[in-house]
Amino acid sequence: MTAMAAAARRWRVARISARYEVSQPGRVTGVAVQLALQIFLMWCLWRALYAVSPTNSGLSEAQALAYAVLGVLYTRLRGPDRSIAEDTVAQHVREGRISYWFLRPLEPRHYHRLRAIGDQAYGFAWAVGGYLVCLLVGLVQKPVSATALWVFLVSLLLGQVVLYHLLAITDVATFWLVDNTGVIGIIAFAQSLFAGAIAPLWFFPGWFQTLSSWLPFQSSFHIPVSIYVGRIPAGSAARDLVVQLLWCLLLSLVLRWLWGRAGRRVIVQGG
C-alpha cells in the first residue's frame, strides 16, 4: 500500500507537463496538426527525391521515408513545450524560481527526473500513436523480421535512456548558461542533427558520419531507427547496442556530476 501510495505521488508529479497540454484542447489539436503536416511534407520531399534516383546511400525509398517519418515522431519525445507554461529549467533559473526547488523535501535532481520521465513518456505515447497511424496508411512498414523487432525494442529503450540523459544534461547546463539562450538553442539543434532526426545520417558525408559516431546523439535515434528500417541488420547490431549501453552509463555519470556542481552553484538573480 505504501509502495502504491509512493508510486501514485510520483505519478502525479510526473504528469504535470502532460496536464498542461491535455487540459487545453487547442494545444492538443495544434500538436496533431503540426505532426500531420510535417509528416506530409516528409512524404512529398522523399517521393520527389526518389523520383530522381531509386536508391540513395543504401536506403530504399520506403526505408528513407520510414526513417524520416520516425524522425518527425522522435521530436515529440522531448515532451510538451514547457516554455509556454514558463516551466523550463532555463526559465526557472533565469527568473529565480529555481529557489523553490531547493526548499522541498525532494532533491532537485529527483524532481527533475520525475518530470523528465513524465514528459518523455507522454511524448512517447504521442509517437506511438503517430506511428500506428503511419503504419496504417502505409508510410511506415513493419520491421523486416521478428528478430529485428526485438532488437529494435531493446535499442529503442536504450535510445530513450540516452535521450533522457542528453535532455537532462542540457537542462542542468542552463545553471551555467543562464544568459546564453543561444547556446542552449544550438545544443538542442545539434542533438537533433547528430541524432539523425533532421535528415538520415546515411545521407551525410563520410566525415560527418565519423564525427557523429563519436558523439552520443545518434544512440538516441539513428541506431534504433536504422535497425527498424533494416539499414543496420539485426544480426550485426550487437556492437551498436553496446555503444548505446556505454553512452547510457557515461552520460549518467556526467549528469550525476553536473547535478552535484549545480547544487553548489545555485545563484539566484536579484538581491
Binding site: 505521488r9 510520483r10 496536464r19 526548499l103 522541498r104
Partner: peptide
C-alpha cells in the same frame, strides 16, 4: 520552513492552483 519570494511564484503556471497544492502535498508527503 516555508517561503514566498516576492512575485516569484512556486505554483505551476498552467495548473489550477488547487492542483498545484495537491502536487505540493505529494512532494511533502
Amino acid at each position: 520552513i516555508g517561503a514566498v519570494f516576492g512575485q516569484r511564484t512556486q505554483l505551476w503556471w498552467d495548473l489550477p492552483a488547487r492542483e498545484s497544492f495537491a502536487v505540493l502535498r505529494d512532494i511533502f508527503k
